[in-house]
Every structure is written in C-alpha cells, then in structure tokens.
Design a protein around this nucleic acid. Sequence first.
DNA 1: CAGTGAGCGAGCTTCCGCTTGACTT
Length: 773
Amino acid sequence: MKEENLVIVESPAKAKTIEKFLGNEYLVKSSFGHIRDLDKKNLGIEINNNYKPNYIISPDKKKIVEELKKLAKDARMIWLATDEDREGEAIAWHLYHVLSLTSEKTRRIVFHEITKDAILNAIKNHRFIDTNLVNAQQARRVLDRLVGFELSPLLWKKIKPALSAGRVQSVAVKLLAEREREINSFKTSSNFKVIATFTKPGQDDKIIKFQAELEKRLADMEISRTFLEKMKGAEFKVSDITRKPTKKSPLPPFTTSTLQQEASRRLGFSVAQTMAVAQRLYEAGKISYMRTDSVNLSDSARSATAKVISELFGKKYLHTRNYKTKTKGAQEAHEAIRPTNSDLQTIQGNVSDRKLYELIWKRTIASQMTDAELEKTTIRISNSKSPDIFIATGEVLKFEGFLRLYKESPEDDSEEESGNLLPPVGKNDKLFPEKIEASEKYTAHPPRYTEASLVKKLEEMGIGRPSTYAPTISTIQNRQYVIKEDRAGDVRKCKILTLSQNTIHESVKEENYGFEKAKLFPTDIGLIVNDFLEQHFDSIINYNFTATVEEEFDLIAEGRVDWTTMIDKFYRPFHKKVDETSKTGEKIKGERLLGIDPESGKPVYAKIGRYGPIVQIGDIRDQENKPKFASLLKGQSLEKISLEEALKLFRLPRIIGIYENSEITVGTGRYGPYIKHFNKYYSLKKGVDDPLKITLERAIELIEDKRKDIKNKIIKSFSDSPDLLILNGKYGPYISLDKKNYKIPKSKNPNELTLDECKQIISVSERKTKKKK
DNA sequence: CAGTGAGCGAGCTTCCGCTTGACTT
C-alpha cells in the first residue's frame, strides 16, 4: 500500500534519498520549490484590500501540482517536509491550500540533515504549519514585489526601458559604484622599501643568505640615498631574537558562498559555473545540498570523516569540531556542503566535476583535522651608524596538521616559496650585508570586486540568500549595470638604489600594474541608475535596509506584529515618494560638459544616448546646425572621458585605405567598432583592435577572416536560388532564406537536401507558425 | 546572429526566493 503516506519535500534528489530510508508505506514526492507566486501580469497585490496577495500557480508547476493533488486525495496522511525556514514554511502552507488538505490528515515535519534517525525523529515530533512564520514570508515577498515593481517602471520613465531595481540587486550595484569612485579618486603615492641581504655561514660551511627589511619605509629618493650613505661601512649585529609558536586552524566546511569564493580563486570558476557543477554533483548523489548557509555537519558525517582521517593520516591528525555560523540572518535549514561518502576522494566525470568534488572533499575532511603548528622567528638587527632596525622573519612548520590536505591559499602550495629560511644565529652575532637595496613601492587602490568577492560582501551584509547569489550576479550583468571583463594594465618605473661594495648604484625597473582579470566594472548606466536611486530612495538601497526589515520579519514570525501593518507602514511613504519623483523633472542622461571644441567653438558634452554613452558637439536646440554624435569606445566612461579623448572620437568614421579598388572605412556603431568595405561590415576584435589606431593590413586580415568564416558556414547553396542557403549554426545545420531560419528535420541529411526539399521544409514550417497565431 | 543610428510613438520590460528542465532555427 504505497498510498498510505505521502511525504512532500522541495527537491527531487532529496525525495529519492529519503524514500530509501522510509519503508514502502511512504511515497516521497517533491514540489520543485515554490508552487505559487504573486501574479506577474500586474502588481499582484491588492493595495486597497489590505495588501491581499494574488497568488497564482506558476505555469511550470501546473503539472506537478496536478499530480500532487491526485496523490494527496488518495493518501491517508500527508507529511509536509519542506525546509525549516521562512520560505519552506510558506511552501508547506501553499501546498496545504492548493492541494485542499485538511488539518486531520496533514502533518508538518522538519529535519536539518538527511539521515534515517533525523527523519524518523521528525515523524515522531510532528507539528502543524506555523502561520506566523508564513506571514513573515508573505511580508518578505510582498515587500520585494512592491519595491521592484514600483521602482523599475520609474527607471523606465526617467532613464531608459527594461531597467530594474530591487532590494538586493540595487545594493550590489551600489557597492560596485562606490568602489569604482573610490578607485577613481585614489591618489597613488610611493615610498621606498629597504631590504638588506645578509650572509651567515651555516652548517658544513654552507653560506646562508637571508633578507631583512628596514622597520620603516623611507619617504623619497633623497632620504633613501642619505640613509644608504650612512650605511656605508656600518657594522651589523643581532640585537634580539624571538621565537613564537603559532597555530593555524582549518576553515569550516563549505557554504554556498565560501564554495563560490574558493572555486573562483582556485579553479577560476564563475559563480554560475560553480552552481551548475555543484547541482550535477548533488543530483548524482555525490554531495549534500549545495544551497546552504550552514557550516554544520551531521553527527554521522562527522564520524565518517573522523574514520577517514584516522585511516589516511592516523589519530594524530584527528580533531573533530563543530563550527558555528557567523553569518547574519543564516537560517541553517541544511547541512554544510560535504561529500555524501567521505571515503570517496575523487570521482569519475569531467574535469570541472572532479575538481570541484575534490575541493569539497578536502575542505570537509580538513575541517576535522588538527591545527597546524608553526614557529615564527623574528631577528632584530641593529647597526653602528643609526638607531634604525632591520627585521628578518621566518616561519617554520613544526606540525602540518590539516595543512597536509588543504592549503590556505594557492601560494602555499609551492614549498620553496615559503620564504626566508633563517640561519641559526645568536644574540650579538655579527652580520655582513652583501647589499642593501632601497626600491620604490607604489600604494595600490582598493581592489575591484570579482563575482565571488561581491557575493562574499553581500553575505556579510546579510543581503540575498544562497539560492539567489548566482542569479543576482547574472541579473546585474544582464541589465548592463555591470560588465565582467579583463582590462589591460600599464607600465610604470620604479627607482632603485643599491648599496654594494661600498658604492651606491642607481637603476630603474619597469613594473606592470593595474591589470584586471575577470573583474566587475560598473557601466555608465549602472552609475546613473545608482545615483538616481541614491538621490531619491536612499532608505531602500541603504546598506541597513535589509537588516532593518529582517528585524521586522522576525517580529512577525514571533507573532508580535501583524504583517499587513508592517507593510502598510513601509508602503505609504514609499509610494508617495515614487509618485512625487515620477512627476517632477525630465529624463536623466548623465550629461556632462567637457569643454569647448576649438575648431567650431561649440560645447562638447558626454551623455547617455538612445543606444548607450555618446559624446556630442553642439547643442540639441541649435536648429540650423544639428549636433554631431560619436559613441564611446570600450573602457571609456562618461565620468572619466576628457575633452581630448572625446574630440578624437569624432575622427571616426575615417578612411584608412583602398582594398580591391574600394575604400575601407573605420567607424563605431551601436554594436561597437567596425570596418566597412563594399558596403559590408566587419566587427573589430574586442580588446585587440583600436579603431583609432587600426592599420590597413590588419583591416584586410579581418575582412579575409570573415570571408573564410562565411565560406565554412555554408554547407550547400543552389545556383537556381542564391538566397536560399543551408548553413552551419550554433545549434547545427539550418536553412536560411530572407533573413528567416528554418529547422531541418532530424531524419534528413543536410548535405543531401535538394532545393525542392528545402522549399517544402520552409512551407511546412510557415504553415505551423501561422497556425500558432 | 546580424546589425552599424540619433524626437512618428504600439506594447513590452521589472522584484526575491524556492526548485529543475527543455532543446533552440
């Protein structure tokens, strides 16, 4: 009798696992997350009916809901086993109503780990749906909808269509905008770092070389020179030695956010890629659930881990521990991300799957290993000519502990890098400097965010959830508030003064700096939207907003505040502000006057145009001479572009030469820089070609490349009908005619299609699309 | 994937959190 008991969880993979634990009088099904949501067609909330939410069954859930309805009807008892957090409670509540359940045949159960004991225990301790917690979720949902669906249309009206704003995404953009401006206003300075290289005879007459750094940095070149002059003929001795034992503890097992960070740092994964791989591993039963904010391991997982450590490394390396989460607002409905089978060090599968799995395995095992023990030695070195002190530090690993398995940073992996090996010295030992070098060091601006470091920051601020980190990062890129890219660095000169053999030598070293790899840059639109929101809706995108409303959601969950009262208090002033802002002022274009064009005497502006950032010579109101426009190039921004750079852009389009008796021109259009030849367009390679500098040779190369590509793309053409082509596209072969594309049935070989067959495929598909309409 | 412009004004866009597929022309 499988129909006796119906258990509903959120994830199908979880359902499969649980079914194994429970006897066959239990049928375990999943809801695939939320089954209902606010109506998307309008606000989905009846403002004047005490904020009554208008829930509708999500289109992609209709099938599963029908199935669950049927099963629930036949079952004797329904166990709602969704996650024990706000969202999980709401899912249970929606199920209860949508499936028309009754309190007699419904039980609410919860467990935080998927083990037999945990589940049987949950069944014993069943309860009923917590309405207060459900109401806290409704408040969360309604608030997010109100903010998103009132602010977004305001942006369409004031800035441009299809933009968006929200409690989470707008804060993410704000973080990037603020950091970018910090970087723009950062003034680089330099000072001099002084390093002395000493030699000391070690065991077996081996000479040990080691370095010591001057305790303070010197302000400039002249001061450095004076200092080195003073060091000529100075005598050095050890004035003090300290040895201090230190410990390094392992990091806790992975949460969604820390997994994303480590996979980014060590494997170079984007956050979306990490989640896609983790999802595969989860569905294959290799790892526990990958969307979690908990660092907790179940008792059984911990003892399995302990067994592995004892077997692989011995008891000496075992130190089981419980980690406590420090994350604000963590709901801890699941375990940490861990391997389901601790014995499995690696898995079959593609490279990414294997690498991510091994990372998870190592981190989990290491979390239950002993601390690493180190000894840090500090040698202070004084000299006869000045009171200044040189300091040499070195670290020796006494016991590797968890480091045997999991190095803290990728750099730790290279053994010899671990630096300065110090010689055995005693107090008052004399030391002889081989050379002393003062080299110029520049201060660095605050780092730009990567996808992963932005997630980390959001998590620290308690904004967003494990299930939304990756989608949020995608959203701000899709809206083109932010672009992820590499940017070329620059070269600068570092002055070096070297004292050796009693003479001072001056040299210059070139240093690369400022190279950015896969960093997030706010775009002009991102900055303008952010400024607009900051100006009018600071209270919403303020870093404290989420924290404050979370406190209120907690009060609702405790039954101390009515959720509609809370929403009303928020909505009234908010909506008033939206109305006011909507009425006043005109479109925001981020316009900036750059200066006067020396040729025409007209003003030059930078602003957002219909298709993105542009520069403009002349006024729009000038009826006789319409203004001239030019698009900004990649890497340029409205905020930073200078008059000189702007004027250069007007040199496009320009003719760069003749090829095949026809002019080649270079310009920039709405899709970026291009070259034009015979009325055909060829895009320039992003990040490689500069339209202001491109040569005729390179342009011809691009034209020939594109011609080759087109040739390779054509599988078949017909002389009777030159417009009809069989092409090789991203999704395989297809037929192209009059800018429309048609799918080739799987049964046909594209190489053998005749013209008549093609025409038939086209007419069949035309008929189909007509029918749809 | 193809496209390389700049006041005609239709109808559309959008939030955050739960969870996985379908299959591109």
